[in-house]
């Protein structure tokens, strides 16, 4: 557990432990619980009324464009983090600030464009 990747190994091991605990819990649950299925029990619940047709219904998904916007903004946020970290270090100064302003202006332009195109409204 030493060295640069030691801390990451701990996280990976914890992931393994977590999966093991929850999978184990579900397995124990499977062994302990009664299991007496009937056709009525196994119908999809939906809203309590007997389901009609296939499981999925076609419907208009609002705000799906937001997922694209999310990708753009999430990547932007990730670029902002290292900048914010080194920002005050010696050797970075005004130039870093201006560069990041330009970068943020591009992001802001993106959201303004989406706004103007009325992507951000209930359609």
């Amino acid at each position: 557990m030493t060295g640069y990747f030691g801390s990451y190994v701990v996280v990976a091991v914890l992931l393994g432990v977590g999966v093991a605990i929850f999978a184990g819990g579900l397995l124990a649950n499977r062994l302990l619980r009664p299991d007496r299925p009937t056709a009525e029990k196994l119908t999809t619940y939906e809203c309590g009324v007997d389901p009609v047709g296939e499981g999925w219904a076609q419907s208009q998904i609002r705000y799906y464009v937001f997922t694209y916007l999310y990708v753009v903004f999430a990547v932007d946020a990730v670029f902002l983090f290292p900048w914010a970290t080194v920002f005050a270090d010696p050797g970075f100064g005004l130039t870093t600030l201006v560069e990041m302003f330009v970068f943020l202006a591009f992001i802001a332009l993106g959201i303004l464009y989406a706004w103007r195109k009325r992507v951000l409204t209930w359609t």
Binding site: V11, L14, L15, G18, V19, F22, A23, G25, L26, A28, N29, R30, L32, R33, P34, D35, R36, P37, K41, L42, T43, T44, Y45, G55
Partner: peptide, 30 residues
């Protein structure tokens, strides 16, 4: 909840239906 009968509706996608609670719970702990 741990001891009562668990219903897996006939139409569900069995693997993902089983995996979803694990996928949501483990990262929360991590």
């Amino acid at each position: 909840m741990g001891l009562k009968e668990d219903l897996m509706p006939r139409k569900v996608d069995k693997l993902l239906y089983f995996l979803a609670p694990v996928i949501i719970a483990v990262p929360a702990f991590l």
